[in-house]
Computed example of a mutant assay.
Amino acid sequence: MLTAHVVYATMTGNNEEVANIVCDSLTNLNVKVTESEISQTDVADFMKADILVVCAYTYDEGAMPEEGLDFYDDLQSTDLTGKVYGVAGSGDKFYGEYFNTTVDHFDDAFKKAGATSGAEKVKIDLEPYEEDIERLNKFAEGLVKTASK
């Protein structure tokens, strides 16, 4: 059975909701899922899963979540070869060019660590609506399909 660890950072609750949707979708695809808040998660714990997911917000003009900086730094210096990853996040289009840049930063960190992208990153404006839930379900399906190879 495949395992997944979904980590989230949230300020408004939107990214916890995004994480919950991804977890439910993975569970429905027969994946054993662990979910945790980013400041309560060590990258070593993250390593125990086949599929690694980060759902995080972007603060202000492109700032990453303070509570996730250590995790982000540790992630980049960890060998994630053989792991499948995905990144999703809720942000606010109000910030224009800075919209959801944390998703891009985590995507780059996973690549730097040698992990394999299992799905296209998902950027959501504010809270997830029906079309976002569909995108997140497809995201989860892509992760499972890639990890099953």
Rank of each mutant, 00 (worst) to 15 (best):
M1Y: 04
T3C: 09
A4G: 09
A4E: 08
H5D: 05
V6R: 02
A9G: 15
T10I: 08
T10P: 13
T12A: 14
T12L: 12
G13I: 00
G13Y: 00
N14Q: 04
N14F: 06
V18G: 10
N20S: 15
N20A: 14
I21Q: 04
I21G: 03
I21M: 08
V22A: 05
D24Q: 10
L26P: 12
L26K: 04
T27M: 05
T27D: 14
T27K: 11
N28M: 08
V31S: 07
K32Q: 14
K32N: 15
V33S: 08
V33T: 14
V33L: 10
T34I: 10
T34W: 06
S36W: 10
S36H: 07
E37K: 12
V43H: 04
A44S: 15
A44D: 14
D45Q: 12
F46K: 05
F46G: 09
M47F: 00
M47R: 11
K48G: 11
A49L: 07
A49T: 08
A49K: 03
D50Q: 01
I51M: 08
L52A: 05
V53E: 05
V54W: 00
T58G: 02
D60Q: 12
D60E: 11
E61G: 03
M64R: 07
M64T: 11
P65R: 01
P65A: 14
E66L: 02
E67Y: 00
L69I: 13
D70E: 14
D70T: 12
F71Q: 07
Y72V: 00
D74G: 02
D74C: 09
Q76M: 13
Q76A: 11
S77Q: 13
S77D: 15
D79E: 09
L80E: 07
T81Q: 10
V84A: 10
V84R: 03
V84H: 06
G86H: 01
V87T: 10
A88G: 06
G89D: 05
S90R: 01
S90F: 00
S90L: 02
G91R: 02
G91I: 07
G91N: 04
D92A: 10
D92Q: 06
K93A: 14
G96A: 06
G96V: 02
E97Q: 12
E97K: 12
Y98D: 15
N100H: 01
N100D: 15
V103P: 11
D104I: 05
F106N: 03
F106H: 02
F106K: 01
F106A: 06
D107I: 00
D108G: 10
D108H: 09
A109V: 03
F110P: 13
K111G: 02
A113Y: 06
G114D: 03
A115E: 06
A115M: 08
A115R: 01
T116Q: 14
T116C: 09
G118L: 01
A119T: 07
K121V: 12
K123N: 12
D125R: 02
D125T: 01
E127G: 11
Y129K: 13
E130M: 01
E131A: 13
D132Q: 03
E134V: 12
E134A: 15
E134C: 04
R135I: 00
R135Y: 02
L136A: 11
N137H: 11
N137R: 11
K138H: 04
K138A: 13
A140W: 00
A140L: 04
E141M: 09
V144A: 05
V144P: 10
V144K: 08
T146A: 11
A147E: 07
S148F: 01
S148A: 14
K149A: 15
K149P: 10
